[in-house]
Computed example of a mutant assay.
Amino acid sequence: MTLTAVSTALAWRADPYTDALRSGRGPLFLHRQDGWLLPLEVERWCAAPDPADLTVLRRCRGAVLDIGCGPGRLVVALAALGTAALGVDVSPEAVRRTRRSGGSALCRSVFDPLPGEGRWHTALLLDGNVGIGGDPAALLTRAARLLEPEGQLIVEAAPLDVDERVEVRVADGRGAFGAAFPWSRLGSAALLRYARATGWRAAERWTSAGRPFVVLRRA
């Protein structure tokens, strides 16, 4: 694991995030150095899949790897449908919650060695997880190595025209902070630029409940 991946893993194990997952509710934010706050949708993550999530689940095929699975709502839903699915997350509490709910998950970074490398049919980067590591090109390149040659990567973009790489901390809005770590936010246009540069093509695009999604396949 790189130093960046280590710092990210430690940050997501910070008490504000762990406490929010244990309670199933926020408030929780990504806090940028200039004081800007991005609300994190803990309640949605800890609930059953919503209608926008269902549009993603309907497009999953074969064995599914959920990168940054959080509390595991999608992994659990896929398992209930009889689909082979594995979540990976750097937060031990996220992995515990996923397993308690009936899903399979590993406490690892996406940049660690993972089971089935090169054989997954579908990989997911939802809920802002295209920001993992703060280096979209590195993450998209890594995702390509995890999938079979004809596999698909389903990515959720930010609902804004944004392309930023910043340092953030997890915060609860009441004075508690985690460690700083690098993060990215990509709107659809920026995501497609990084995708083309790393050998992907957009196979499908749609928006549901204001959330933009893209299916990427190897060019």
Results as ranks from 00 to 15, higher is better:
residue 6 V to S: 14
residue 6 V to M: 14
residue 10 L to D: 03
residue 12 W to C: 10
residue 17 Y to C: 12
residue 18 T to I: 09
residue 19 D to H: 15
residue 26 G to Y: 00
residue 27 P to C: 00
residue 29 F to V: 04
residue 29 F to H: 15
residue 30 L to R: 14
residue 32 R to A: 10
residue 34 D to Q: 06
residue 36 W to H: 13
residue 39 P to H: 03
residue 39 P to W: 02
residue 40 L to R: 07
residue 41 E to S: 15
residue 41 E to G: 10
residue 44 R to K: 11
residue 46 C to T: 14
residue 46 C to Y: 00
residue 47 A to I: 01
residue 48 A to N: 03
residue 50 D to K: 07
residue 50 D to A: 11
residue 52 A to T: 02
residue 54 L to C: 04
residue 56 V to I: 09
residue 56 V to H: 06
residue 56 V to K: 06
residue 57 L to D: 07
residue 58 R to N: 13
residue 60 C to L: 06
residue 61 R to K: 04
residue 62 G to K: 00
residue 67 I to P: 05
residue 70 G to Q: 05
residue 71 P to G: 04
residue 71 P to L: 11
residue 71 P to F: 10
residue 72 G to R: 05
residue 76 V to M: 10
residue 79 A to C: 14
residue 83 T to I: 14
residue 83 T to L: 06
residue 84 A to R: 15
residue 84 A to C: 13
residue 84 A to E: 15
residue 89 D to I: 05
residue 90 V to G: 11
residue 90 V to N: 10
residue 97 R to E: 12
residue 101 S to A: 15
residue 102 G to A: 10
residue 107 C to G: 07
residue 108 R to K: 15
residue 109 S to G: 12
residue 110 V to P: 13
residue 115 P to N: 09
residue 115 P to W: 05
residue 120 W to C: 04
residue 120 W to T: 09
residue 122 T to A: 08
residue 124 L to N: 11
residue 126 L to M: 09
residue 128 G to L: 13
residue 130 V to K: 05
residue 130 V to Y: 08
residue 130 V to E: 04
residue 131 G to C: 06
residue 132 I to G: 02
residue 134 G to T: 04
residue 135 D to V: 12
residue 135 D to W: 10
residue 137 A to K: 05
residue 138 A to Q: 02
residue 138 A to L: 05
residue 139 L to Q: 01
residue 140 L to R: 08
residue 142 R to C: 02
residue 145 R to Y: 10
residue 146 L to Y: 08
residue 148 E to V: 09
residue 149 P to Y: 07
residue 149 P to M: 11
residue 150 E to Y: 04
residue 151 G to S: 12
residue 152 Q to I: 12
residue 152 Q to L: 12
residue 155 V to T: 00
residue 158 A to D: 15
residue 164 E to D: 08
residue 166 V to Y: 01
residue 168 V to W: 06
residue 170 V to E: 02
residue 174 R to G: 13
residue 177 F to A: 09
residue 177 F to N: 12
residue 180 A to V: 11
residue 187 G to S: 12
residue 190 A to Y: 01
residue 190 A to N: 00
residue 191 L to R: 07
residue 194 Y to N: 03
residue 194 Y to P: 00
residue 195 A to L: 10
residue 198 T to K: 09
residue 201 R to K: 10
residue 201 R to M: 11
residue 202 A to P: 14
residue 205 R to W: 05
residue 206 W to M: 02
residue 206 W to P: 05
residue 208 S to W: 05
residue 209 A to V: 01
residue 210 G to S: 07
residue 210 G to F: 07
residue 211 R to V: 04
residue 212 P to Q: 09
residue 216 L to I: 01
residue 216 L to C: 02
